[in-house]
Design a protein around this nucleic acid. Structure first.
Lengths: 152, 152
DNA sequence: TGGCAAATTGCAAATAATTTGCAAATCTAT
DNA sequence: ATAGATTTGCAAATTATTTGCAATTTGCCA
């Protein structure tokens, strides 16, 4: 189980931040659509709610500094946002270079290989988090024989 | 051994692209400064060369589609560019959340753990490349007792 | 519950980062 | 050297995100 909206609400309060309609709405969208969303997409999912795009950006920025949300840049276009570790399962991404499709992978070679500990021991750098994304061809694009290296 | 500028020149020619001053200059900067650079920084390093920022962007875009350069987004600010795998050693980044310092790590848990093969076998997704960045506190920031979770 | 102070929002304007149109300049292959 | 295709410079256009400020919302407490 992960921390719920209720937990986040308390967390915000404890730090002097208000629990507002905009913030609750943004978090709800992120919880409801478990995949990296662009600010624009989140805003669109809120069209009925009367919430300004600026507020979406402001909410995302706040959540990011509080480590509730993390920003990921996958392939082309604007960055995307998703709930951070602790608010959903630790995972990585599989991004298809051809169709842009994004899938999650929960296997984590970083933890499995104890890389953080190894790095800390060898360099003194204290690893707190990591981002791992894998690019390539998804099954259907591969079957379709699509090539990524468009060059002619 | 890695592919040299000469190789790249031939590669471009083979695809109908010209070997121009701007392109050569951008590649030289990337080769000379082996760390992720912003478009702006590359341009600045070329100030004497009379090369327009637009051309830097155009060169980077071309190199990116040809997999000669890869774009990485580390922490805040504009994305950075560095030579891609095949043109320099495969590596990952250690990014200090406090001072922004970037170091390289050549240990790769993804290859070591044979994650690509595992994924391909299990999901049919053919992994071609990956990006792994680790965030935390570098040795000096840690000694200085700096905290990252700035919250009030 | 009402009221106040502090925090947040909406909106429009400001920035920042990157892209594009097009004529002039450069490059490759004769 | 020359022709023809590609690229560059420059300025203007886009795209993504941030900001100022008055109006509104929220948290807290009598």
């Amino acid at each position: 189980m992960h921390k719920t909206l209720q937990h986040i609400r308390v967390l915000l309060g404890a730090q002097g931040h208000f629990w507002t309609q905009a913030r609750a709405a943004v978090l709800t969208v992120l919880t409801t659509h478990p995949r990296p969303l662009r600010a624009e997409e989140i805003h669109r999912a809120l069209q009925n709610r009367h919430i300004n795009l600026s507020s979406v950006y402001r909410a995302l920025r706040l959540f990011e500094t509080l480590n509730i949300v993390r920003r990921v840049t996958l392939g082309k276009g604007a960055p995307r946002y998703e709930l951070a570790d602790g608010y959903r399962d630790h995972h990585h991404h599989l991004v298809c270079d051809t169709c842009g499709r994004i899938e999650d992978v929960t296997t984590c070679p970083v933890e499995a290989g104890r890389l953080p500990q190894q790095i800390q021991r060898r360099t003194g750098f204290a690893v707190r988090s990591h981002v791992l994304d894998l690019f390539g061809l998804c099954r259907s694009c591969r079957r379709r024989g699509v090539s990524t290296t468009e060059s002619g």
